[in-house]
């Protein structure tokens, strides 16, 4: 209760006067101070984003939803609104532009991820089918698939004899993530699969991968991945950056699962939540980078 009162008083009155006071003594507005004093990456971009979002000016508030091609114009408008001269603070423009590129980049990454998720796996689509077969070949190079509909799919962790029903709510996002991991870190993926194939402590590799795609997707959607992307991608993050994060999750989840030694697959959701909490905790650190530390092709 006290906390809410404090929050209310702070955001309504104190913050304004504090900013005014600091502006008087430093001669710079809040955004300028953030761009000058905070380290590039999440420490700077997340603060700038918060400052813009809580601004009284509609120009500044609107900047958090800016599209990539309007960033340049948006920077000029902000400088005009805040009456900042380029000559007096030459670094500011460059830094603010970078912040806005990261902010708009995160939003557009979500849009493209969502688009791929909404695209269901379609057996009639040749490209989808090829991708599914590619996943098999990457993971099981020595074993030939007997037919398109076969129990063998269970060997890489699909539920039944046709994987098409397993992608469900994750659609093609689930499949592209699995293929990306197997293609970029082939031997790591095979090693993870071998852990998953353990008769007692195993799990279903492919559907756990689809489940972890859901984890990555939800974290992206609720903004939890901002610090990670602001710290690891200087400009606009691409789909492959999201897929890299997925690789991190699969690798780390497998490690976690093996270490924890659950009794059986029936405990999956319990350990998934534990792992999810661990990741969420890591993401609260403004300097976080969730990077898979094995070399590609390894």
């Amino acid at each position: 209760m006290l906390w809410f009162v404090w929050q209310y008083v702070y955001t309504c009155f104190l913050r304004f006067w504090l900013k005014w006071f600091l502006r008087q003594i430093t001669g710079r507005c809040e955004l300028q101070r953030i761009c000058a004093n905070c380290k590039a990456g999440a420490p700077r971009t997340a603060k700038a984003e918060h400052s813009l979002r809580s601004s009284k000016s509609t120009v500044l508030r609107g900047a958090v939803d800016v599209k990539e091609d309007a960033v340049e114009n948006c920077v000029a408008q902000i400088m005009k609104e805040k009456n900042i001269k380029e000559q007096s603070d030459p670094e500011f423009k460059v830094r603010l532009r970078q912040c806005l590129m990261q902010i708009s980049g995160y939003n557009s990454l979500y849009v493209s991820v969502e688009e791929l998720r909404k695209q269901g796996f379609d057996s009639e689509n040749e490209a989808h089918e090829q991708m599914l077969l590619k996943l098999w070949n990457l993971l099981m190079p020595a074993v030939k698939l007997e037919s398109r509909i076969t129990k063998q799919w269970g060997d890489i962790g699909f539920q039944g004899d046709d994987p098409k029903t397993d992608f469900r709510g994750m659609g093609m996002l689930g499949l592209t993530n699995l293929v990306f991991f197997s293609e970029t870190y082939t031997s790591t993926a095979r090693r993870v699969l071998s852990h998953a194939s353990h008769p007692k402590q195993g799990y279903s590799y492919a559907i756990v991968g689809i489940n972890l795609t859901e984890m990555a997707y939800s974290l992206l959607k609720n903004g939890a991945l901002k610090s990670h992307f602001y710290n690891t991608v200087p400009g606009k993050p691409q789909l492959q950056h999201f897929q890299q994060l997925f690789c991190y999750l699969v690798y780390e989840f497998d490690k976690f699962w093996v270490e924890e030694q659950p009794e059986s697959i029936m405990e999956f959701n319990l350990y998934r939540e534990k792992f999810h909490d661990k990741v969420k905790l890591l993401l609260l650190d403004p300097s976080i980078t969730l990077i898979l530390t094995v070399e590609p092709k390894n």
Binding site: R168, G169, N211, E214, M266, E267, F268, N269
Partner: peptide, 12 residues
Amino acid sequence: DISHITPTQGFN
């Protein structure tokens, strides 16, 4: 929300 359901490993 029922839009992002994935196959159930174990139980819910």
